[in-house]
Design a protein around this nucleic acid. Structure first.
Lengths: 199, 199
DNA sequence: CCTACCGATCGGTAGG
DNA sequence: CCTACCGATCGGTAGG
C-alpha cells in the first residue's frame, strides 16, 4: 500500500520533474543531484528515489519534460500553418522566440544536453541523439515541401539549410546566455532569411 | 625544499594539465575530479592539489591550455596572411580543420565551456566570456578590414557576420560530435562562403 | 514519502 | 610528490 494516493504521488512527481528541469538547464543533467533536489523541494532523498528508481531515470524524465516544453513552445504554434515555407518560417519564428524567452533559466535545453552527451556513451546519449535527429527530420521535411511548392529555389539543399539553421540557433543561445546580447534576436531573424535566400 | 627539482615539477604539471584537458573535453570542466586525474596519472591526489592549490585553479589551467591549443591550431596558421578577407578565410579554414581534427576528444572545448558556464557565476564564467569575446573581436577586425579593402560589400554588418560564423562552428561541432556526420565539413565550408556572400 | 543508514568518492589538509 | 586522514556529499537501500 502506498502512503499517498496515486493522484498525490503524480503531483509530487511533477513537481520533482519541474525542479529537475530548472536545475539541469543551469547545471546540466549530470549536475543534477538527488540530495540537492530533495533540499530544494523540502523532501527526503528517499522520496525522490522512490519516484524514479534511479538518478538515470530522473534524468530521462527531465529530458522528456524539456522535450514536451519544446514541442509546446516551438512546434505547436507552427503546426497549423500550411506545410512548406510558411510553416518553416513559423517554426523559425517560434524557435527564436522560445530561445529569447524564459522557458529554461539556463538557455536552450537541447543544446546543453547535446554538448553534455555528444562524447559520452550511455542511454542519455542515445535519447539526445534521437530527439535532435527527429527535429532535424521535421525541419528537412518542411524545406523539401517548400521546394516542391516552388517557394524555395529548386537547387536548395535541404540538409544544408537544416545544418545552417541548427547552428544559427546554437549561436543565438550563446549570444543570449553567455553575453546577454539581445541584439542577437534580430540578427537571428535576419540570418534565417539569408539562409533561405529570402533577401 | 621541494622533493623534486623545479624542472621535474614542471613536467609533472604539464602532464596533469594535458590529461585534464582531455578529460574536461569529454566530461566538462565541472566533470573533472582530482581523484580520477590522480588515478589516470598514477599519482596521489595530494600530488595534484599541491601543484594547483585547488580544483578551481586546475580548471583554469586546463582552460588556459585549451586556449593555447586553439591559438596554435586556428590563429597561427592564418596569422601570416594579409589582413582582411584573405586572413578571414584562412581563419575559417583552420577553424573548420581544427574542429574536424583530433585536438580534443570531446569536440570544441570553447563551445563546451560556453554551455557549461553560460548560466553559472564564478571565475570560470568570466574567463570563458572573456576568451570568446576576444575571439569575436579578432573576427570582427578582419571583417572590418575586408570591408575597408572593398573585398566585402560596403553594407556588410561585421557583427552579423561574426554572429553567423560563431553559430556555424557550433553547428559543425554538433554534427561531428553528436552525429559523427563528416558531410558537415563541406557544408560548413559552403556556409562560410554564403555568410560572406561569396557565392 | 519518511528516518536511518551503507560504502564510495568528493575537495582538501597535515606532515614528511 | 607521498601516506594518512578530515568532514561533506554522492547514489542508493531497508524497513515502516
Amino acid at each position: 500500500m502506498p502512503r499517498r494516493s496515486a493522484a498525490e504521488a503524480a503531483v509530487t512527481r511533477a513537481s520533482i520533474v519541474a525542479r529537475a528541469v530548472e536545475v539541469a538547464s543551469v547545471d546540466g543533467l549530470e549536475g543534477l543531484t538527488i540530495g540537492r533536489l530533495a533540499d530544494d523541494l523540502d523532501m527526503s532523498k528517499a522520496g525522490i528515489v522512490g519516484q524514479f528508481g534511479s538518478k538515470a531515470n530522473l534524468q530521462r524524465a527531465a529530458l522528456d519534460e524539456a522535450s514536451e516544453i519544446f514541442r509546446r513552445e516551438v512546434w505547436l504554434p507552427a503546426a497549423n500553418e500550411p506545410p512548406g515555407l510558411q510553416r518553416l518560417l513559423a517554426i523559425c519564428d517560434s524557435w527564436i522566440r522560445h530561445l529569447a524567452g524564459t522557458a529554461f533559466p539556463g538557455g536552450c535545453f537541447w543544446t546543453s544536453a547535446s554538448i553534455e552527451y555528444d562524447a559520452r556513451g550511455g542511454p542519455l546519449h542515445a535519447q539526445v541523439q534521437q530527439g535532435l535527429r527527429r527535429w532535424r527530420g521535421t525541419l528537412r521535411r518542411e524545406v523539401k515541401t517548400a521546394i516542391e511548392n516552388r517557394e524555395l529555389p529548386a537547387d536548395t539543399d535541404p540538409d544544408q539549410v537544416v545544418f545552417e539553421l541548427q547552428g544559427l540557433v546554437m549561436g543565438l543561445n550563446q549570444a543570449l546566455q553567455l553575453f546577454g546580447d539581445r541584439r542577437a534576436v534580430p540578427r537571428a531573424r535576419r540570418a534565417v532569411r539569408r539562409i533561405l535566400e529570402l533577401e
